[in-house]
């Protein structure tokens, strides 16, 4: 019985047990490493929420730009609605400044056009357009963790 099994698999019981324990040891090791990574990812973040209220729609008259520096966003108000563009440079995270043609980063000179598209410098990605929504109390809410396709406007119901 035993020797028959040996012939079929071509591996002795001793080798099989050895390999099996080695495999188990490696798998448990990997599981422990995965656990350490998981442990170091906080379950609760005591950071500021990525969602925040920016006030009533009336505060954003058409044709204005508001720079919310501490939140790292620009709020644009145009004829077709509101949109929020992140002011965090996609290169190394400096805060970009508004220029006549778009945005410019003071750190390594990345340039973006009015829609946040990269037109110069080292920035690898366009500035993010961020989701705007409406809270039940009527004020507007921006979420810096929710990126939306460029060009999406938030329309105020009339």
């Amino acid at each position: 019985m035993n020797s028959a099994a040996n012939e079929k698999t071509g591996i002795s019981r001793r080798d099989f047990l050895g390999l099996a324990s080695l495999g188990t040891a490696i798998l448990s090791g990997l599981a422990v490493i995965a656990g350490i990574f998981r442990m170091s990812k906080p379950n609760v973040r005591y950071e500021e929420s990525t969602r925040f209220k920016i006030g009533k729609p009336e505060n954003f008259p058409v044709g204005t730009v508001k720079k919310l520096d501490d939140r790292g966003v620009f709020i644009f108000s145009t004829d077709d609605g509101l949109h929020a563009i992140s002011s965090v440079c996609t290169h190394l995270g400096c805060i970009v400044a508004l220029t006549e043609t778009g945005f410019q980063c003071p750190c390594h000179g990345s340039k973006y056009n009015g829609n946040g598209k990269v037109i110069g410098g080292p920035a690898p990605r366009n500035l993010a357009w961020l989701e705007i929504s409406r809270h039940v109390d009527g004020s507007l809410v921006v979420d810096t963790a929710k990126e939306i396709p460029a060009g999406t406007k938030f329309k105020l119901a009339v």
Binding site: D69, D70, L92, C94, I95, P106, H108, G109, P122, P124
Partner: peptide
């Protein structure tokens, strides 16, 4: 102060060379 980037954001001197390279591509 997270609102005001150091301008120029200065790497320590031993990384000045790297900083120059960074301004082409962070990766």
């Amino acid at each position: 102060n997270p609102l005001i980037p150091e301008n120029p954001a200065k790497a320590p001197w031993y990384f000045l060379g790297l900083q120059e390279l960074l301004s082409y591509s962070a990766f």
